[in-house]
Nucleic acid binder design. Structure first.
Length: 725
RNA sequence: GGGCAAUUAGCUCAGUGGCUAGAGCGCUUCGUUCACAUCGAAGAGGCCGCAGGUUCAAAUCCUGCAUUGCCCACCA
């Protein structure tokens, strides 16, 4: 036998993956007498190649999957990809822009077709990458969120929600992205700090020389004011409130009332707030409570509408603000400006400033769903690792607001909503309804909106099993065991899966939630293309191998903590992989040279030394520790313990000790005892190493002269009694 | 405004009541015909953020403070 002096990942990894895949080791045997271990892979977005964050998830999930497979449980890991609504639309629109085109040049159908082809290409890239990373997932069950059967299931969920009164259409103030031209949920808005001015404007009191001064960061919205509000407890304004004061809205010919609203902060600005129900969430709320008119002065294009008045119509909001200030100054109604720092909402995907607008959208009534989700966690049916995220989860769930699920984009699942042209009655149906149930008309128009991408991914753990059909897979594999993902999508995804899972299936979709952190560079900087510190997982794999990357990602990264990754760390782990390779090389070459007669003999016939017993005792202890690390989701600890034990116990002590004994042995039973320790020490180490470094361990296993199974991946996890000498 | 986390060697982190506080990387010295120089042996390097408290005993538990990072919120 010839063995390379160093581990060469490129030469080996592809061959090993093919062996596993061809033998069908990733596909579980359904066995009703055993509980399966199931993970649904968080589906990567099909608009790009994998990034290092995906690699973290893959590494951790594959570690769990391989461990439980070795334990003899039926394991299933379901791969898939997400169409990733807005993000993908933005990405593909950028592609089009490079050719000087927009989606409107293509039209809805052609745009969808091209984007679909684009995601299919990415899907193939992602598949290849997952394989390179060693993901032992069941490819026969792979899914995409736009597969026809998935879409049908999503429609069914929507239909049920609608039937139960948990989904409704309504005019509400929503977050509008003027660039994406769509409504967004609250979660899809991120805030960034901005230096701006606080503008003070005097509103004349009708029938007196008095003024009420308001403060605003957005002077242009005053054109849509329908009231001014003060806190009822504010002494300064008591007499005005008592007299039912009316105010003349400057720059318009409107008369608006002064009203009392407890939401107004006495200490902010002048204590008087201009109320623009059409363009501010708080004002919208106050407006509803006081039956105020909603006057939309800003359009979906972020320009002033006709209702803003002739002088302002068509201006961009910023331009309009300047003009309003100028005009107020002329009238002597500008009471001054001060510097002010506040945060502005921007679109999570394209960073355009969000325009709050009143618009007709579809919402999910989340309160009842959230209550069920909270109690699933409170009762321990779902457990979070690390536990601290439970508190964060509760806080969000307890303050949840209705979820806007309609998007005015083209890429995604079009809502199965049909409106009768004659009587406006709504029918929920996958296909065009035959006849309106109310008026009998056959004339329908389909809702042009698509679903929020998280509406479908929020159902992923049961969609992949064919729900609502009670398939064999659904009955056996659902609920799943562990949901492993990044904490950054706790609300976006995990929370929604729990709500929709319980609603649709009556059961929480998983038992454990394991949340990993964000990947950062060694200066704790977030990775971004502009900083140039992005680690491309596939480049790392090409250079150092998949095993080294996996180790580097789990080593030293506790649950929920940021994951620090650097070239040095990966190199260090590549050294470890090489160490494993070389230890095996030594063992295999040694026993080959010595004839390996010990393999045919019973261990009772060898005379073991004190060190031999000590080594196996220590190995038994390692095994116990590793098992308990897995039970507590402490993969980093398990990795560190195994690393240390292999290198400093097995290599530095046991190999050195046995090496000497084999050389100096006087009696064959002494030599054979040493060989036994060397060999079975290695075999058992390989099993324990395998979840973390599957490629190098399997490639060594394939070279063993004596093995119980065809492959290490399906071996039996060691038991303590295997270590009794 | 509310909340969460972190703070231990130059760097990245272990260590949740009990020997002299540990590991990897880095650094210093020595060592290769022996599996691996992608290696081995030895070594230097710590007021465990600060201040109190509980305890026979505190890096570890409690209180306060500081610094850093993050999350949430209708900051007009």
């Amino acid at each position: 036998m010839k063995i390379d002096k160093n581990y060469k990942p490129n030469k080996i990894e592809q061959k090993i993956y093919k062996l596993w895949e061809d033998e069908g080791y990733f596909k579980p045997q359904i066995n009703r007498s055993k509980n399966p271990f199931v993970i649904i892979m968080p589906p990567p977005n099909a608009n790009n190649a994998l990034h290092v964050g995906n690699a973290v998830a893959i590494a951790i999930e594959d570690i769990m999957i391989r461990y439980h497979r070795l334990k003899g449980e039926p394991v299933l890991w379901v791969p898939g990809t997400d169409h990733a609504g807005i993000m993908t639309q933005v990405v593909y629109e950028r592609e089009l822009a490079k050719k000087g085109k927009s989606r409107f040049d293509l039209g809805r159908n052609e745009f969808y077709k091209q984007t679909y082809a684009f995601t299919m290409k990415n899907r193939q890239v992602i598949r290849d990458q997952l394989k390179k990373l060693g993901a032992s997932c069941d490819w026969t069950r792979e899914k995409f969120t736009l597969d026809p059967d998935i879409k049908e299931s999503v429609y069914e969920t929507f239909k049920r929600l609608y039937g139960d009164g948990l989904v409704y259409q309504g005019e509400r103030i929503i977050n509008w992205c003027p660039r994406c031209q769509t409504a967004l949920s609250d979660l899809e808005v991120v805030y960034k700090e901005e230096q701006t001015k606080l503008t003070y404007i005097k509103y004349p009191v009708v029938g007196s020389g008095d003024f009420i001064t308001v403060a605003t960061t957005r002077p242009e919205t005053m054109l849509g004011d329908t009231a001014v509000a003060v806190n009822p407890k504010d002494k300064r304004y008591k007499k005005f409130l008592k007299n039912k004061t009316l105010l003349k809205l400057p720059l318009t010919d409107r008369i608006i009332p002064l009203i009392a609203a407890k939401e107004v902060d006495v200490d902010f600005g002048t204590g008087a707030v201009k109320v623009t129900p059409a363009h501010d969430p708080l004002d919208f709320k106050i407006g509803r409570e006081h039956n105020l008119k909603i006057i939309q002065v800003i359009g979906k294009d972020a320009k002033m509408t006709a209702k803003a008045g002739k002088n302002y119509q068509g201006l961009a909001t910023k331009e309009c603000a300047k003009k309003v200030i100028l005009d107020l100054k002329k009238l002597g109604l500008l009471a001054g400006q001060t510097d002010y720092a506040h945060s502005v909402g921007v679109c999570e995907r394209c960073r355009t400033t969000i325009e709050p607008l009143v618009s007709k959208q579809w919402f999910i009534r989340t309160k009842p769903l959230a209550e069920a989700a909270i109690s699933a966690v409170k009762s321990g049916k779902i457990k979070f690792y690390p536990k601290r995220f439970e508190k964060i989860f509760y806080h969000w769930m307890e303050n949840i607001k209705d979820w806007c699920i309609s998007r005015q984009i083209w890429w995604g699942q079009r809502m199965p909503v049909w409106r009768c042209k004659k009587c406006s009655n709504i029918a929920i149906s996958k296909e065009r309804p035959k006849k309106c149930k109310k008026c009998g008309s056959k004339d329908f128009v389909q809702e042009s909106d698509t679903f929020d991408t998280w509406f479908s991914s929020g159902q992923w753990p049961f969609l992949v099993f064919g729900w609502p059909r009670q398939t064999r897979d659904f009955r056996y594999f659902y609920p799943t065991t562990v949901m492993e993902t990044g904490w950054d999508i706790l609300f976006f995804w995990v929370a929604r899966m729990i709500m929709l899972g319980i609603y649709c299936t009556g059961k929480p979709p998983f038992k454990y939630v394991y949340l990993h952190g964000l990947v950062r560079d060694k200066d704790r900087q977030k990775m971004s293309k502009s900083k140039g510190n992005v680690v491309n997982p596939l480049e790392v794999v090409d250079l150092y191998g998949s095993d080294a990357l996996r180790m580097a990602l789990v080593f030293g990264s506790g649950p929920g903590n940021d994951i620090i990754i650097s070239e040095e760390k990966i190199v260090g782990q590549a050294h470890f992989i090489n160490k494993i390779w070389n230890a095996a090389r030594f063992v295999l070459l040694t026993i080959q040279q010595e004839g390996a007669d010990f393999l045919k003999k019973k261990k009772e016939s060898f005379s073991f030394s004190k060190n031999d017993k000590l080594f196996f005792d220590n190995l038994a202890r390692l095994l116990k520790e590793v098992d308990s690390c897995f039970n507590e989701f402490n993969f980093h600890k398990a990795a560190e313990k195994i690393y240390k034990f292999f290198w400093h116990n097995y290599c530095d002590r046991t190999i050195e000790d046995t090496k000497r004994r084999i050389k100096e042995a006087k009696r064959p039973e002494d030599k054979e005892a040493a060989e036994y320790v060397l060999y079975y020490g290695l075999v058992n180490m390989l099993k324990i190493l395998h979840p973390f470094v599957p490629y190098v361990s399997e490639s060594i296993y394939q070279m063993l002269p004596k093995r119980d199974k065809k492959a290490l991946i399906i071996e039996n996890w060691p038991r303590e009694k295997d270590f009794k000498l």
